[in-house]
């Protein structure tokens, strides 16, 4: 098992290397001379020369990459041109809000998606199954920025139950934190809840029709015990993997959710950076998000190996 996990970790290295090259090359997509684009309205030759020197743009491309990746490995993701702050500091500042949102969204989607999937499979072919399927497809199809706006209209403007914007960290005041983040977390998790429901349903249907469940029924166990202790336990293994994989996508979805609910997180950081042409921040956020995503897929694999007795060896 240890060798399997070690091999999987080694396989990540080329992926991370290529990923870093792609993210480094993003800067090269800037139309024309990147130094001119980075200088923005300030076309003073001295400023441009300074930018060229600061960004190592006067060096050959592989050398530029070498300097850049060496800095990244030391934790130096560059400097935000707009805020004059190290990008790494900005990311450390903004990441907790996004992580809190993503964890809450994951929990909400697990609660809704898994429950609906299990009920739908157990009641296959009934009206409950049909409604659950329709709701799941709607969850997958609804644009989360529109769902956010509609929920603000209902819960904040019409009913006045929840705040429309703002964010309080859970470490500060958990009640206010929950009130400010429950709507955005629901919006962020709606898509994954739909995906989870469909996966859980098909995994449960497969499990319910398997020999070991038939054996459990033949032993005279009650239906609830058969479903919860036997079928669900086995059906949930792929769901763990899916949950870990989807966590990275939740960070991506947070871009829109944070924009709608004015949450000062990771997503808002990249959007503000895009509009202020703060390219180092854009690069940094993409790099960190992609790395988290890769690490989550590693965790998913490890979780799968640990949960699967045949691979545990």
């Amino acid at each position: 098992m240890t060798r399997l996990i070690a091999r999987r970790m080694l396989q990540l290295l080329p992926t991370l290397f290529i990923l870093s090259v792609i993210i480094f090359l993003l800067q090269r997509l800037l139309p024309g001379d990147p130094a001119l684009a980075l200088a923005g309205d300030d076309q003073d030759p001295r400023v441009i020369a300074e930018i060229r020197r600061q960004w190592n743009l006067d060096l050959p491309l592989p050398v530029q990459y070498g300097y850049w990746i060496a800095d990244v490995l030391r934790g130096d993701l560059g400097q935000s041109m707009r805020l004059n702050t190290p990008v790494a500091d900005l990311i450390v500042q903004k990441l907790p809000a996004t992580l809190q949102l993503a964890v809450m969204a994951l929990l909400i989607s697990l609660a809704i998606g898994v429950t609906a999937g299990v009920i739908s499979a157990v009641r296959k072919g009934t009206i409950v199954d049909y409604v659950a399927n329709v709701v799941a497809l709607a969850g997958i199809s609804v644009p989360n920025f529109w769902l956010g706006i509609m929920l603000i209209l209902l819960f904040s403007i019409h009913l006045g139950w929840l705040p429309a914007s703002g964010f309080v960290p859970i470490t500060e005041d958990w009640r206010t934190s929950l009130a400010t983040s429950i709507l955005p977390a629901f919006v962020l998790g709606s898509h994954f809840a739909g995906v989870l429901m469909r996966h859980t349903r098909s995994a449960m249907l497969e499990a319910i029709e398997s020999d070991y469940v038939r054996t459990a029924r033949a032993k005279g166990l009650g239906e609830g015990r058969v479903v919860l202790r036997h079928a669900m336990r086995n059906a949930l293994t792929p769901i763990i993997t899916l949950g870990a994989l989807e966590f990275g996508s939740l960070l991506s979805g947070a871009v829109l959710t944070e924009q709608i609910f004015s949450i000062p997180g990771f997503g808002k950081l990249i959007v503000d950076a895009v509009f202020n042409r703060d390219y180092a921040v854009v690069q940094g956020v993409v790099l960190v998000t992609a790395t988290i995503y890769v690490l989550m897929s590693l965790l998913a694999d490890i979780g799968y190996i640990l949960a699967n007795p045949r691979l545990r060896g």
């Binding site: 080329p14 991506s252 871009v255 950076a273």
Partner: peptide, 24 residues
């Protein structure tokens, strides 16, 4: 396959935002 894996490791919307940002 390695390049595909690397690109798939980048969340869809974040990569699209970064590309759209750098392209204009």
């Amino acid at each position: 396959s390695r390049v595909t894996d690397a690109l798939l490791a980048c969340p869809f919307l974040i990569l699209a935002i970064a590309l759209a940002a750098f392209l204009g």
